[in-house]
Design a protein around this nucleic acid. Structure first.
Lengths: 205, 205, 205, 205
DNA sequence: TATGAATGAGGCTTCATTCAT
DNA sequence: GATGAATGAAGCCTCATTCAT
């Protein structure tokens, strides 16, 4: 639950930096940007709060590192093999799994999204990341469109926005995220392409 | 654009209170809770910052009033007449319209959602509101379920969560909210119940 | 020694502001800009250090007010009546008197001079003030030049710079300032225009 | 412009120490004591800031070394040959030349002068140096006094203070220092001892 | 000698809040 | 109700200094 990730081999040199970023993620997840305090982050990794400035000149720099970290952790490559409907389900399932495993990452993303409204640089970076996701989703939906993988009424362009909206909305309540995302893939995929098992099951094949 | 409607009785005493709440809404929409400052709110309505405390004993009280205000403005009763599919579309269309007309209200809601994670009282209130919405949506989806209004695969319970997720996600980018919500209703409503021509659809195949 | 100046009638409203400026002058005189601390200035007038910001938004603003105050206190109009040589002596005598009465003012001026090298705005203001002084001195020296008031070899333009240099140098050691300035006027004024009394006396007429 | 001369023995070990002192001089000249930072000084010579403490245990020690350096560089022996008036002119000309060649040295001196008001040890050292200068000037003026080298009205004792004041004042604006110092020697030296044509005089009447 | 990590004191500033008028 | 003055806690950041390597 804490320190939720990779110990680098040998307690390496810049572990401290990593540790600070991870502590900041925890802190943001728990208290929001509103409650992000360098002192607390520092205490979390066990150093004096002024030492934080040894690694990050400014608080904003730490936040920038948090963005990079979170983005890095969340970048899920959409699988390229298989049929479009399968790839979509895999993608959404993977996201749902991540949400339940590491909900803090998504909370922080939501905070960043909101903060990006007032921070131009942040917005630029986030939009860049989102553009990548958007185009990947676009390609997927278009390919499925050609092969008749989708439910009638699914528009490839609008579908992208729908997926993004669901993910962004679902991340706020991880406990229900799986349900929403599963339901979404159900509705997007053509009935005859969808495995005919238990309607509420998460993984049907 | 500002001071949106809702005159209380006769330009009365409580207008100032209202004004403060609305100014706070603007401020939160623009700067987040992170940047909410009583001084700025006070300046926005043209009074001294210490006078704010005559209306709201504490900053948190102002925030509470903001929640009430926003909730009040956003409470859209799901139309009760007509067929389920029509009612769903009406509801989502109404939300989309509101999002483009008064995006600040939704931004503030998103901020409140995030903040409610750290504020128990806030969470309680928000969950109460959401419970009402959830049950209304549940009733709607169940009724449509019985009458075969929905697309195959739509689960009434999961569908509620999906709708909520989409709305919560869509409110972050008002310019795309319409697209997402329209796409959602398309996918939820059974193909044969959906009007053949849809003036708001971007791409009809 | 402290509070060296005019009590405004009735302990007026913005006495506090004045008091802060005067405390800052004392502090700068004693500790230099290097040692100027808002906390100390605040303590000197008996208020909390954060209250200083009620009067001066920023430390720099306080320094700006100090400049204005010092400049105001130091602006000595060169007497316009009498002969040029008498006016010069009066001016230098007045400066010498001020230096011994209120040495802090001059110390602060010296600090400001030095600081103006790194602060463009400060330099601009100081140069403006100095330009006024310089031109007044120029007019005085030119008029004496025509009437043969000065010692041979005195150049009106260079003489201005010499006077300024002496004043700036003398202010650093108030105890010797009188001697330097008297000697200066002696050397500048033609021998036959200078009263034939005791050569080291400060005031010979 | 930087690294002004004075190689210690064979590029030796102490070069680093020298370099630090010179960097400190530059830094003080540019930013004042107010802005003197060990980190910047260290960066200027290309070493880590904590390494500075291997050469100077404390910041104050570095400042002390700066004083020694500056004093050393500025100690100009008053020429002992020639007539008093010539020696005076040589001395003042040499100072003027130094001011235009290495203005930083004089800026630092001015800073030190101001700082010496709050630092007893510093003041003691500076007063010692000044005492040497003062007595040398005193001897010079007395000798000229006997030989009738000076303008009427020049008092040997007061003259010393005048010279010191001019030098201290002139060093603040190197571009005008030459003018002031030349004018000073003109006024101090008896008219019949002053060369009829003076190549450096701006205006010869 | 040189470094990088760490510290702790202290500085300026912000801000909600209180109080007297 | 309204104001301005005042407070005190807290935040970010700076910097000289120390220490282990």
């Amino acid at each position: 639950m804490a320190k939720d990730s990779r110990r680098v081999g040998g307690d390496g040199l810049k572990d401290r930096r990593q540790g600070l970023v991870e502590a900041a993620v925890r802190s943001i997840a728990e208290c929001g940007f509103e409650g992000l305090r360098l002192r607390i982050v520092a205490a979390d990794v066990g150093i004096d709060h002024s030492t934080v400035h040894h690694y990050f000149a400014t608080k904003e720099d730490l936040v920038a590192a948090v963005l990079v970290y979170v983005t890095d952790q969340l970048t899920t490559t959409i699988p390229s093999e298989n049929s479009p409907e399968r790839r979509l389900r895999r993608h959404l399932d993977a996201l749902a799994a991540l949400m339940s495993e590491r909900p803090q990452l998504f909370t922080v993303t939501a905070e960043l999204d909101l903060r990006s409204r007032r921070d131009d640089r942040l917005r630029a970076k986030i939009e860049l990341d989102e553009a990548g996701w958007r185009s990947a989703l676009g390609a997927l939906l278009r390919s499925g469109h050609e092969s008749g993988a989708w439910a009638p009424g699914l528009d490839p362009i609008a579908g992208v926005e729908l997926i993004i909206a669901v993910v962004k909305g679902a991340r706020l309540s991880p406990s229900r995220a799986g349900v929403s995302l599963t339901q979404l893939s159900r509705l997007m995929i053509a009935a005859d392409r969808f495995p005919a098992t238990n309607p509420t099951a998460k993984r049907g094949d």
